[in-house]
Amino acid sequence: MLVTSPGHSTKAHQRAIFDRQCAELRQRRRLHTAFGLLLFVALCIGSAVIGKFSPIALIEGAPKLGEYVQRTLPALHWSSLGADLAYWFYGLRKWLDLLLETVLMAYLATLLGSLGALLVCFYGSRNLALNGWSYHLARRASEFFRTIPDLVFALIFVFAFGLGPLAGILAIALHSLGANGKLFAEANENIDMKPVEGLRALGSGWVQTMRFGVMPQVMPNYASYVLWRFEINVRTAAVMGFVGAGGIGMELITAVRSLYYEDISAILILIVVTVGLIDIGCERLRHALIGRETLE
């Protein structure tokens, strides 16, 4: 039963409720913050302890790293700049070849992986799947290939297919299949189903419906994902050589282990420039694709 004396007492009543809620909210906030802070500190300490990470070690190591970096930098004089640069990049020919191999590896792997993802993604989309069984199979397969790092696949493939880019390409391709399989499927699940219904109603088969009803809608998304994956894959391809699976990584790790200091900086600069250029190019393309969509 509400005391119905309009105006004054109801206002006081409301004010009391407000004050109470305010206090509750503040209390809850404080608790949350305290809890969050506690969790955060615990995590930090835990990670530091288990990771045997101490700021002291880092500070001790910093000058060592500085010294190392200094040794990798070449001696460049203005007077003999041309000769100095030529000496620094003496292996340019070989390295450029390997860089080309790296980029091509990434290109092929992205292509193969994305084609595979294209085949799998429709089965893995909840709104398009033929039946529950194929949906789960497609999703789990994508997950499997996506979860296992490409380097792990590369390790296995090097043993099976020998040293060289073949192992690297297959490894990156499988991983890309998984990654893009999921992204493509998610894009599929967000489409407008009306064209699909229209096509079903005129007797279109499942494959045809995917081709004409789904793909026109998701093509820009697919292209964007493929470009993004290519950017990532170039980086991965660059380090594939660490396990002997091709690309410029092998040169880099040889240089590090054999203490060819100046080679390290030279190769690194080449890698950074290549990856940087490809990144910029892909970003432009992706913005062109997605930008066009949102403008229209």
Partner: peptide
């Protein structure tokens, strides 16, 4: 079949 929302492929 003709639909209220046309159900064409927009792109």
């Amino acid at each position: 079949m003709i639909f209220q929302q046309f159900n064409l492929v927009p792109r």
